[in-house]
Each structure stands twice: as structure tokens, then as C-alpha cells.
Write a protein that binds this DNA or RNA. Structure first.
Lengths: 169, 169
DNA sequence: TCAAGGTAATTAGCCAGCTAATCAATATTC
DNA sequence: GAATATTGATTAGCTGGCTAATTACCTTGA
């Protein structure tokens, strides 16, 4: 969760810029805008999913399973795709199983592993969520002009592609 | 933290779209891109700040104090500006005080309250961080064309302005 | 062939948000 | 001016990520 309601005013950045070197307020502002909006939207997404008894982490796990041809996968694969640790996936799938949304069955190809299968109930829940989700995202994005959609996606991807520069040695 | 490495492929969204109604993959993609990049950038920001013994929450508190004319503020104000609960701010300022970066002195205008003051050490730490931070954000954003910076900021703000539609009743 | 190292899942415990409940001080209203 | 409501900070306990360590199983190469 990001944490800054009021982004710095340009004149504030200008002052710093004079002290420390050239920084364009508009670019700093874009960076902060992505941080804050990402955080805000995530909170809203969680609020939306809460009605269905899910968090976005639990939801994405179900979505990933749904994308599989046989609606099942191994924890390590899911963790990789979802961008969480395997330890985290252990907890996620355990709780999803308790809620009857997935089933965990021993993997006969690899004795260390397990197959996570989407249950009927899990699939039904997704069927209930997805149309509503798409509709809402559609509504949210409806006011953005087409060119801006393209430009914004490109800009953010460019930014994200260099994200490692932020913490590079 | 958002959690989805691979955004859905357009053809996948198309399939859903046919089932459930019109959803433009490019717009869904923008939404997901903001979520994911916000999350990724936040992780990188935390990695960067870790070297200085800070998290982004601790850092923003210091920044907010620095912005005040008298480099001090009350916890409730800081919490408000930072977008966290007051209970969270209690913990943040307590730990910042332990590290000698702020001082908490009783407020003589309001007996319930406290003034959080940036210490010399806190100010020094910020002075060490900010130039580096601006430089890195500058580098990260350098490759984005000017028009895209503008367009992206507008688009994201438009999206964020409607964020409440996601969880509206 | 079997010892050594690698990989899968798990457990235990950390962290920094959160909410709910509490206590103290201030403001408001009758 | 006493009763009530509000506001500020705090505490306790929840959550869902995380890392590190453990256990079980697989794979490889001398």
C-alpha cells in the first residue's frame, strides 16, 4: 500500500531541483501517480472482492487455475505466475481448500508435489465475479480517450521496465 | 502488493468479452498495468530505502515533517496526509523516535496530543536520500516521451478518479 | 550405487499495515 | 456547569505478505 495523499507541489520539487540538480516535476509526478493509483486501485479491488469472500491474492490464484486447460496446476507454478513465494502459496491454497474452492491432490508424477485443482464451487464463484469485474473496469476506464489509453500503457511499461534502476547498486 | 506476473493475453479477454459483453482488452490492460507497475515500483522503492534503514512509510513521514515550516506536526495530521490510520502513525512515530529520527514532545495547546519533530539526524538522513532519489526517478523516467508523460498522468488520474466505481454498491 | 546437491512443500516466526476497543482531554449543548 | 459527544493517542489482536529453516523426494555424477 502506498501512502501519500497529497503529492508534492511542483514548486516544492522545483526548490529541491535547484538545490540538487535537474528533476522535472512532471516526471516525478508521473512516478508518484503510478504508485498512488496502483495502491488506491488495489484497495478498491480488494473491497470489491471482499463481497465474494476473496482477496485479490486468492482471486488471482483461482483465475490462474481457470486459465489452465485442465483447471489445475502445481503450487510452485502458481507462485511463480502470481509473483509470490511458495510459502505464501502454501497458505493461499490451504485456505482456498478449506473454503472448498480448490482441491489439493497428491501428484503421482512427483512425490514432493501436489496438484491444485479448481473445484466446481471455485469455478462457479469465478463465473459470478468475472462479468461484474469486467463491467466495472469497463466503466472506470470509459472516460479515457483512446490515444491516452495507448500512451499511458506505453509510458507505464517503459517506466516499469526500468524499475530496477531505482534500487540498483 | 499486486500479484500477477503475466497479464492475461488479449485473446483470453476476447473470449470472455464474447461471453459476457463488451470489454476492451486495451482498457483492461491499462488497469492491470497500473496495478502491477504500482506494486513493482513500490517494492523497488522499498529496496532503495532499505539501505537508509527506512521503509516507504517511515520515509514519507519524514518527508511530510520536512515540508512543514517548523519541521513538526501532530500524529493525526501526518496520518491524514499519509493516508494511514492514526493507530498506524502511533507505531511509525514510536519507531522513528527509537531511531532518533523524530522527537515526540507533549503538545501544550492540546493535552491529548503530541508534536512530532524532525530531529537533526532525521533531517540529515533525508538530505542524504533525496538527491539520490530524484536522480534515480529522473533516470527511470528519462526514456518516456514528453507527450506520453502528460497523457499517462491524465489517464491515470482519470482512472483513479473513478476508482470508487470498482467497489460501489 | 549411493552420496551430494537441488527442488517441492511446509512450518515458524517477522513485519507493517489494519480494525476495534480504551482512556484522556476537549467541545458542545441543554 | 454538568452531561454528552467528539477527537487524539494508544493498545491488543488480525491479516497476508515475507524470510529462514525443515522435511521429503528427486537427480546427477564419481
Amino acid at each position: 500500500m502506498f501512502l501519500l495523499k497529497d503529492l508534492p507541489e511542483d514548486r516544492y520539487v522545483e526548490r529541491f531541483s535547484q538545490k540538487y540538480g535537474p528533476i522535472e516535476p512532471k516526471r516525478l509526478n508521473l512516478f508518484l501517480t503510478v504508485l498512488r493509483s496502483g495502491s488506491d486501485l488495489l484497495v478498491e479491488l480488494d473491497n470489491f472482492l471482499e463481497r465474494f469472500g476473496l482477496t485479490h491474492g486468492r482471486w488471482i490464484t483461482l483465475v490462474l487455475l481457470m486459465r489452465e486447460p485442465d483447471v489445475s496446476a502445481r503450487p510452485a507454478t502458481l507462485a511463480e505466475k502470481q509473483g509470490v513465494r511458495r510459502a505464501t502459496m502454501t497458505g493461499l491454497t490451504q485456505r482456498l481448500e478449506m473454503d472448498g474452492l480448490v482441491r489439493r491432490i497428491p501428484d503421482d508424477e512427483d512425490g514432493r508435489s501436489v496438484r491444485i485443482c479448481l473445484t466446481e464451487a471455485g469455478a462457479d464463484l469465478l463465473q459470478a465475479i468475472m462479468p461484474e469485474y469486467y463491467r466495472r473496469v469497463g466503466d472506470m476506464t470509459a472516460g479515457i480517450p483512446d490515444e491516452q489509453v495507448e500512451a499511458a500503457t506505453m509510458a507505464i511499461n517503459e517506466l516499469n521496465g526500468r524499475a530496477d534502476l531505482l534500487s540498483a547498486p
